[in-house]
Amino acid sequence: MEMLIASYREQDHNKLVEIWERAVRATHTFLEEHHIEFYKKVVSDVLQQRQVEVWEALNAGAARFYEKMGFVQMGRSELDGSGNPFPLLHLEIKADQAAR
């Protein structure tokens, strides 16, 4: 199977949020519904930004994916932005990768 990864396009916004939600519901069974709804809004709001946060625990594959896509770790937090005990890696895409 061939996979194409493209830069963000506004016309894909709703579909990307939908894909994110399906993936989270399939893999993040520890989250309660209010967590999913909260983060869905956050994802929708920040989708166009050059930074992402990746849950560190049991999620090395996601970190490797973002590294492969040109992101570098800029920091780490023990708690997420809501104060929940979900350690996060803060990643930012390199300028030369963002234009791809």
Rank of each mutant, 00 (worst) to 15 (best):
E18R: 15
N14E: 14
L16C: 11
N84Q: 09
E10Q: 14
G61R: 05
K41G: 14
W55F: 05
V52I: 09
M1D: 02
A62D: 02
L47Y: 11
E2A: 13
E18F: 10
I36S: 10
H90M: 04
M74G: 11
E78L: 14
R22S: 07
L16D: 07
V42I: 15
K15H: 10
Y8E: 05
E78G: 05
Q73E: 06
Q48G: 15
G81A: 09
A99N: 08
K15S: 12
I5M: 13
A23L: 09
K68E: 05
A57I: 03
Q97T: 09
E21D: 14
V46R: 15
R50G: 10
M74T: 13
Q49M: 13
Q73W: 06
E32M: 07
Q97N: 14
H90K: 08
H34I: 12
F71H: 04
K41E: 15
V72A: 13
K41F: 10
P87G: 01
G61I: 02
G70I: 03
L31P: 00
S7H: 04
Q48D: 11
K41H: 13
A95H: 15
K94A: 15
E21Q: 12
R22M: 08
A98P: 05
R50H: 12
K68G: 14
Q49E: 12
V17M: 10
L4V: 04
H28N: 00
A62R: 01
Y66A: 03
G75A: 05
F71N: 03
H34G: 04
E53W: 07
A99F: 14
W20Q: 01
M1P: 00
R50M: 07
H35P: 01
Q49R: 04
A6C: 03
H90E: 04
K40M: 13
L91A: 05
K15P: 02
V46L: 12
L89S: 02
P87F: 02
A95S: 12
K94W: 08
R50I: 03
R50E: 10
F65L: 15
R25N: 03
E37Q: 13
L47P: 05
G70H: 07
E21T: 06
H34D: 15
R76A: 03
E21S: 11
L91Q: 09
D12L: 04
E37A: 12
M74N: 06
H90C: 10
S77F: 09
E18H: 11
Q11Y: 02
V52F: 07
L88I: 01
Q11I: 01
W55E: 07
L4T: 07
M3I: 10
T29I: 08
S77M: 06
L31H: 00
R100V: 12
L4C: 06
N14W: 06
V43I: 12
G81P: 13
E56V: 04
K68A: 14
H35Y: 13
E56H: 02
A6R: 13
S77Q: 12
Q73H: 08
V24I: 02
M74I: 13
R22T: 09
D45K: 11
A99I: 15
G81D: 12
H13T: 14
M1E: 05
D80P: 01
V52L: 09
Q73I: 14
D12H: 08
E53R: 06
R25P: 01
G70S: 06
E2N: 04
G61T: 11
P87Q: 01
K94M: 15
